[in-house]
């Protein structure tokens, strides 16, 4: 197991370099960053040269990447468009998005799995059909539509919740955005769980468990659920990354000053340092979440052993 973890961590290095290089090239290498910085105005040649020198823009791209990364590992992510250090932005934005992601994740996991289990156990009955229809509707509607609709009705019209998230993003305010963010994933989790449960109810080992005279509750909880949840856990783990990426849309709807907001600002104000910095951290989180899933997978399913 230990060797497996080390190998996986080492494998992350090329993946990390590959993804960050890609985003770095896209942001810095395509087009002229200096021209972008000045927008419609033509920069004064002397200033332009000064900026080019400051950002090492005259060096080859790969060397720029190298300089950038060595700064990153010293904890210096560069400066944003308004001269704020990107590290400051990271420190304020990530906790907010993390909170939103956690809220969404809990909603997704708890409600999605519960719906899926009950639907799977009542295959073909009213509840099951209901869940299938509802999840299909949720999957079919884009997040920004559900977001604005829910915000309008619950936030503006009926004033049940705050239409936007207040300073410091308290959990209470994050429930509605969390639900919106979780929506589509929740539907997938419910469907995946349902299928998995329905499949496992017909499994031979479950018949054995019944033949052993175990109470129904034990048959379901101890014997069926653990087997059924293996694919669901995999999905949930990889979905952490998707949720963080999806937060871009949700944060904009509910005016949450998190990662999505900062990346958006970075793009609007053509601040390469912001975009690359934020994406770099996202990549790391994504990779770690994947590693966690693989390790959890081995805990859930003893047939998988990592040498």
């Amino acid at each position: 197991m230990g060797r497996y973890v080390i190998r996986r961590l080492l494998q992350m290095v090329p993946v990390f370099i590959g993804t960050t290089l890609l985003i770095f090239v896209m942001v810095w290498g395509l087009g002229d960053p200096v021209a972008a910085m000045f927008g419609d105005r033509t920069p004064d040649p002397a200033t332009a040269a000064q900026i080019r020198l400051e950002f090492h823009l005259n060096d080859p791209l790969i060397q720029q990447y190298w300089i950038y990364m060595s700064h990153v590992f010293e904890g210096d992510f560069g400066k944003a468009w308004n001269q704020q250090p990107v590290t400051e932005l990271l420190k304020t934005a990530y906790p907010v998005t993390l909170r939103l992601t956690i809220v969404a994740f809990v909603i997704e996991a708890v409600i999605g799995v519960a719906l899926g289990v009950f639907a799977g156990l009542r295959r073909g009955r009213f509840f099951d059909t209901g869940v299938l229809a509802m999840t299909l509707i949720v999957v079919s509607i884009p997040t920004f539509v559900t977001g604005y609709v829910l915000q309008y009705f619950f936030g503006v019209k009926w004033s049940i919740v705050h239409p936007s998230v207040g300073e410091g993003a308290p959990f209470k305010d994050l429930l509605m955005p969390g639900l919106v963010l979780a929506g589509v994933s929740l539907a997938y989790v419910a469907r995946l769980t349902r299928t998995s449960v329905a499949e496992n109810t017909r499994a031979d080992y479950l018949r054995t468990a019944v033949a052993k005279g175990l109470p129904r509750r034990r048959v379901i909880v101890n014997h069926m659920l653990r087997n059924s949840l293996i694919p669901v856990v995999t999905f949930l783990g990889t979905d952490i990354g998707n949720l963080m990426a999806g937060a871009l849309v949700t944060e904009r709807i509910f005016n949450i000053h998190g990662v999505g907001y900062q990346i958006y600002q970075g793009i609007v104000h053509t601040s390469p340092a912001t975009v690359v910095g934020f994406v770099t951290i996202l990549v790391i989180i994504f990779l770690l979440a994947n590693l966690l899933v693989d390790l959890l997978y081995a805990v859930l399913d003893p047939r998988i052993r990592y040498a």
Binding site: Y205, A211, G213, N227, I230, R303
Partner: peptide
């Protein structure tokens, strides 16, 4: 249910699929 396992027990054909893998 109380008879199953206690008074009448059953052995199945394919032990690999009949035992819980996890």
């Amino acid at each position: 249910r109380k008879i199953r396992g206690r008074k009448i027990a059953m052995i199945f054909q394919d032990a690999l699929s009949s035992l819980n893998p996890v």
